[in-house]
Design a protein around this nucleic acid. Structure first.
Length: 799
RNA sequence: GCGGGUAUGGCGGAACUGGCAGACGCGCUAGUCUUAGGAACUAGUUCUUCGGAGUGCAGGUUCAAUUCCUGUUACCCGCACCA
């Protein structure tokens, strides 16, 4: 039968028999495999999706055959700006476009024969789904973790949208690459910062790949130091700074505050050059990404004329500067500058001719800042002691005793900017009442559904298009009943994906976001696979969200995922990222048409190291097709026979072990190659036993599910493969009776000998020395030593 | 700048705890069968001056190093004036 027909046949079989539908009640051990759900773009499925889906599908299929109750679900992360951009361009409502895209995606996934439990399909854009996203937002609000604040935000002038720090990394818009500018806007925020420590500690409860843990740790960016108060001269006002180097306080020669620092306005009357400083603030806010990186080393700033800060230890008068190399959103927005021992301060001091006082021995501060450790100098009562071991504690204690400063921990992690001024997102369920202020939409009124928008364009004022829909905006205050206005901001596209794995456990529940029973049964996601690019965004948001739900007693575990892995990207055959403009995009549909779904699946698993990026190579795909054809042709050699071969038996057992282990350890490429080796050996035989053939098909089934089922049926080898048990190997049958041992002279290979397993060392030495080629190479040489390792090697050292 | 990673034939990549480097596949070469072949099969395929040399480069440890140690280069990724 033709490949296409075989694939359709089995895909239908699986649907009709509910083969992959997971049960919430089962005596079997549960196993939850999650792959990141796609954003259903208009471009259709990417071969990159296929790489992770096919690989994890093989794992899921194998786990089922091993007797697990496997949950392997799929859904759609369908909110987001691209759908909205598409709508603006083509005047098609996103809901319509998204619906069509989902249909395309689903068809593509199904044509690959992926064993998703489609009865649990979800879409973040479904009101039945986002009702619970909104519900959870209200939970955050109740705990004070969702709050409105006017903050400087990353604004993309092209997308006309606020971006989270995570979306604006590098100072450019994640999506369009435009440089972001800072803008003060009133936004909904989620208090992720409060969870910084928990998110850090929680990593210990996971088995994430180290690189993922590290990325998260760096993003959270914990640092330990001290907050120190510098009195402003002739004033009650204090300038609070944060420093990780309190030991260098005797070396402070100036202070730097961020352009947005509130003390500027507080003391504006005393500042003689206030206009100049406000001008500088304006200048700094307009810097875009390009300028910022180019000016990275070239620091700018303005000296504040009119007041000084007093060093609380030395009582020296310290000049204050305004400079944008100090950020308002980290620490206290003010620093004590120690040019002798900090590169940035050094550069600034050099430029503005500020005094540089070394306080730690070592280095040459006339040439560069010395950031190393050493003995304290020029530091009063700290002189002569080691800075790192002693001074840092001595001074901190002194400051705490005298009320000058205190120990302090800071995080780089910021609260999550949770508003978007777009309409294709979950409406934030809040109402603004002139009398009552912000009032949450009552739970009973959820979901707040998206109205049918007809004008898609975002506005220059930065308001959502929803703001112009009066029947949506105008409402009654749930608290006082008076006229009020609905929030028109929507949630970011990361909202729906921050809890979707929970919904899969109980996708049709109308009364709860997920039932406690389902939560108890499925627990944590055992294995979560997704892109490395989500290591600091989606993955952190999801962990934060779940940790919060845990604190509310809504889920049984603080950490949602046990294992997290990520796959390497698939690049075009030219080694560049696949893109329409480069014309190197490979369409999975075309691959399926030409080579079949099984071949594509096997190829994407065989293509290379799973975690590394690889270049696409259609010729190699053809090679995998040939492999499957050969498996099929091997069927013609089938005989009911009792022929026994020790070698085949050993190879069979080895292969079972190899495939079993490799599928659990991301080694998909070697799992495939070991099956190729097995096939090569079986092909050499005149006849193949049905037992061996069925084992081959069972092992190959998770990777190439259609053709293997078909062959199993044609040759009447037994039960449907995916309903059969996974083959087991016999530990005792993994080693052959005889092995080949290498003989080296001075580490160079001079021959090999076939000997019985466990041949004694003395015997091996004898055989090795009797070898003709060895004799030849030993001519005229004295044997100094012979190293013999049983079952491994003989190395003769000779001179 | 900081943090992480990678480096093996023409290509993708194998190699357990240090023990025959290049498994497996692609590509290539020759042949067989074919009207034909972008089909199938068979044989070969790291380089080589045929002594040897060889896992980015330079050292070291060892009987033995792709694997361990020191230094170094290139590339990739993440963060980036985080005090």
């Amino acid at each position: 039968m033709e490949t296409k027909k075989i694939e359709k046949k089995w895909q239908k079989y699986w649907v009709v028999h509910n083969t992959f539908v997971a049960s919430n009640e089962s005596d079997k051990k549960k196993y939850y495999i999650l792959v990141e759900f796609p954003y259903p773009s208009g471009a259709g499925l990417h071969v990159g999706h296929v790489r992770s889906y096919a690989s994890l599908d093989a794992v899921a299929r194998k786990k089922r055959m091993e007797g697990y109750n496997v949950l392997f679900p799929m859904g759609w992360d369908a909110f987001g700006a691209p759908a909205e951009q598409y709508a603006i361009k083509n005047h098609i409502h996103p809901s319509k476009a998204v619906k069509e895209n989902i249909k395309t995606f689903k068809g593509q996934l199904q044509s690959l024969g992926l064993s998703f439990d489609w009865s649990r399909e979800i879409a973040t854009t479904d009101p039945k789904y986002y009702k619970w996203t909104q519900w959870q937002f209200l939970k955050f609000y109740e705990k004070g973790l969702a709050y409105k604040a006017t903050v400087p935000v990353n604004w993309c002038p092209n997308c006309k949208m606020v971006l989270s720090n995570e979306d604006a990394s590098g100072g450019v818009c994640e999506r369009c690459g435009t440089g972001v500018v800072q803008k003060e806007k009133s936004q909904w925020m989620l208090g992720m910062k409060k969870y910084a420590e928990k998110l850090l500690d929680g990593l210990d409860d996971t088995k994430f790949q180290e690189k993922v843990k590290l990325a998260q740790k760096n993003w959270i960016g914990k640092s330990m130091g001290a907050e120190v108060d510098f009195q402003i001269d002739n004033s009650d006002e204090k300038l609070k700074v944060y420093t990780t180097r309190p030991d260098t306080i005797f070396g402070v020669t100036f202070m730097v505050i961020a352009p947005e620092h509130p003390i500027i306005n507080k003391l504006s009357e005393r500042i003689l050059n206030i206009d100049e400083i406000r001008e500088y603030k304006e200048f700094a806010s307009h810097k875009n990404e390009m300028e910022r990186t180019q000016l990275n080393k070239d620091k700018t700033g303005v000296k504040v004329l009119g007041f000084y800060a007093i060093n609380p230890i030395t009582q020296d008068k310290i000049p204050v500067y305004v400079s944008d190399y100090v950020m308002m959103n980290y620490g206290t927005g003010a620093i004590m500058a120690v040019p002798a021992h900090d590169e940035r301060d050094y550069a600034f001091a050099k430029k503005y001719g500020i005094n540089i006082i070394p306080v730690i021995e070592g280095g040459d501060t006339s040439r560069e800042a010395y950031v190393g450790d050493g003995i304290m100098i020029n530091s009063g009562f700290l002189n002569g002691i080691d800075n790192k071991r002693d001074a840092i504690f001595t001074i901190t204690e002194y400051m705490e005793k005298n009320g000058i400063g205190k120990r302090s921990v800071k995080y780089r992690l910021q609260d999550w900017v949770f508003s978007r001024q777009r309409f294709w997102g979950e409406p934030i369920p809040m109402i603004n009442c002139p009398n009552c202020g912000w009032v949450p939409v009552p739970y009973s009124d959820l979901p707040v559904k998206l109205p049918n928008v007809t004008a898609y364009e975002p506005t220059d004022t930065g308001e959502s298009p929803l703001a112009s829909i009066e029947e949506f905006v105008n409402c009654k205050c749930p608290s006082c009943g008076g006229p009020a206005k609905r929030e028109t901001d929507t949630m970011p596209n990361w909202a729906g994906s921050s809890w979707y794995w929970l919904r899969y456990m109980d996708p049709n529940n109308d009364t709860e976001f997920v039932s406690q029973d389902a939560l108890k049964y499925w627990g944590k996601v055992d294995w979560y696979n997704g892109g490395m690019e989500h290591a600091t965004r989606h993955l952190l948001y999801a962990r934060f969200w779940n940790n919060f739900l845990y604190d509310e007693g809504l889920v049984p575990n603080a950490e949602p995922f046990i294992v997290r892995t990520s796959h390497g990207m698939i690049l075009g055959s030219n080694g560049e990222k696949m893109s329409k403009s480069k014309g190197n995009v490979i369409n999975p549909n075309e691959c399926i048409d030409e080579f079949g779904a099984d071949a594509l699946r096997v190829y994407e698993m065989f293509i290379g190291d799973y975690e590394k990026e690889v270049n696409w190579n259609t010729a190699s795909l053809n090679g995998c097709k040939k492999f499957l054809d050969r498996v099929e042709r091997l069927g013609t050699k089938l005989r009911e026979s009792n022929r026994y071969s020790k070698e085949i038996e050993v190879l069979m057992n080895k292969t079972i072990k190899k495939v079993t282990d490799d599928l659990d350890n991301l080694k998909y490429n070697t799992a495939v190659s070991s099956l190729m080796i097995l096939l090569n050996e079986l092909e050499k035989l005149d006849e193949v036993t049905t037992k061996d053939y069925r084992t081959l098909l069972l092992l190959l089934n998770p990777m190439a599910p259609h053709i293997t089922e078909e062959l199993n049926e044609i040759y009447k080898l037994g039960d449907v493969l995916c309903e059969s048990s996974w083959p087991k190997y016999n530990k005792e049958k993994l080693v052959e009776d005889s092995i080949t041992i290498a003989i080296q002279i001075n580490g160079k290979l001079r021959g090999t000998i076939d000997v019985a397993l466990d041949t004694e060392e003395s015997e091996l030495e004898k055989i090795a020395l009797a070898n003709e080629n060895v004799k030849k190479h030993l001519e005229g040489k004295n044997i100094i030593k012979v190293i013999v390792i049983k079952n491994k090697i003989v190395n003769i050292v000779a001179k």
